[in-house]
Computed example of a mutant assay.
Amino acid sequence: MGCRKRAAKHQLLRVVAVEGVCVPDSRGALPGRGAHLHPDPTCLDLAVRRRAFPRAFRLQGNLDTTALREYVEQRAGDTPAG
């Protein structure tokens, strides 16, 4: 969504909108329309800047991405640099 680069499904993070909040769905089990994004803060920033989430979920207005940002930043901090 953010960087628009293609990747295998297992390399991407599924995101779902629940009551106006973008929620990470790491297991792929949450109901509803999902969007896929690289679990990288840069990709998330691009998606937010481009307003890709409301378009992907076909919703009006802004969505809260705080929980998603915390998840992505924590996951980016867990991976070793290399």
Rank of each mutant, 00 (worst) to 15 (best):
M1W: 04
M1T: 14
G2M: 02
C3E: 01
C3I: 11
R6W: 15
R6D: 14
R6P: 10
R6Q: 15
A7S: 12
A7V: 15
A8K: 03
K9F: 13
K9E: 15
H10I: 14
Q11D: 15
Q11T: 10
Q11H: 11
L12C: 05
L12H: 09
L12Q: 04
L12E: 09
L13S: 05
L13R: 06
R14M: 04
R14D: 04
V15E: 01
V15C: 05
V15Q: 00
V15A: 03
V16R: 00
A17N: 00
A17M: 08
V18H: 08
E19G: 01
G20L: 00
G20N: 00
V21F: 12
V21C: 07
C22A: 14
C22V: 04
S26R: 13
R27D: 10
R27F: 02
G28I: 13
G28K: 09
A29H: 12
P31A: 03
P31C: 04
P31Q: 09
G32N: 08
R33N: 07
R33K: 05
A35H: 11
A35R: 06
A35S: 03
A35F: 08
A35P: 06
A35I: 01
H36C: 08
H36K: 14
H36F: 09
H36P: 13
H36A: 09
H36M: 06
L37I: 14
L37W: 11
H38W: 06
D40M: 10
D40R: 03
P41D: 12
P41H: 13
P41E: 14
T42L: 15
T42Y: 13
T42Q: 15
T42I: 12
C43Y: 08
L44K: 11
D45V: 10
L46G: 11
L46V: 13
L46P: 12
V48N: 05
V48E: 13
R49N: 15
R49T: 15
R49P: 08
R51N: 03
A52R: 02
A52H: 03
F53T: 07
P54S: 09
P54H: 08
R55S: 04
R55H: 01
R55Q: 04
R55P: 05
R55C: 04
A56C: 09
A56S: 06
F57H: 00
F57S: 00
Q60D: 15
G61Q: 00
N62A: 00
N62S: 06
N62T: 02
D64R: 07
T65V: 10
T66G: 00
L68P: 10
R69V: 10
R69Y: 02
E70I: 11
Y71E: 06
Y71T: 07
V72A: 01
E73P: 01
E73D: 05
Q74P: 02
Q74N: 00
R75M: 08
R75P: 02
A76Q: 06
A76K: 01
A76T: 14
A76L: 02
G77V: 12
G77K: 07
G77M: 11
D78W: 03
T79Q: 09
P80G: 12
P80H: 11
P80Y: 13
A81M: 07
A81L: 04
G82H: 07
G82W: 12
G82R: 10
